[in-house]
């Protein structure tokens, strides 16, 4: 399977990364090299093999279901590029 320029445009939108028009073709080449290389995994027989879901087998401890942090909205907003009051501000999304 080979990625086209249009595929790259579509993936770039999925990833919300603006790739300039003139970079789409070279990027398709670069991604195809990488994808072509990882496709060698197809030759590995993985019948009946479970995909790894946990790196180290261990029990996940439960914590008490209590509030540990409150009234930290000023800290959360401290790095916001744009905000009003205790809100993040974004471009208008509803007409």
């Amino acid at each position: 399977m080979s990625l086209t320029k249009d595929d790259v445009r579509k993936i770039a939108f999925l990833a919300r990364i603006r790739v300039p028009e003139e970079r789409l073709e070279p990027m398709a080449g670069e991604l195809n090299n990488i994808v072509g290389w990882v496709e060698q995994l197809a030759e590995v027989n993985t019948d009946g093999v479970e995909p790894m879901t946990s790196v180290v087998e261990t029990e996940t401890p439960l914590r008490a279901d209590v509030i540990t942090q409150r009234a930290i909205s000023d800290k959360i907003l401290a790095n916001a590029p744009d905000g009003e009051g205790s809100f993040f501000a974004v471009p208008k999304v509803v007409e």
Partner: peptide
């Protein structure tokens, strides 16, 4: 085809 396959290979490596 890609992600699940890779995680299976990861199991084999472990």
């Amino acid at each position: 085809a890609y992600y699940v396959k890779a995680q299976k290979v990861r199991t084999l490596i472990a």
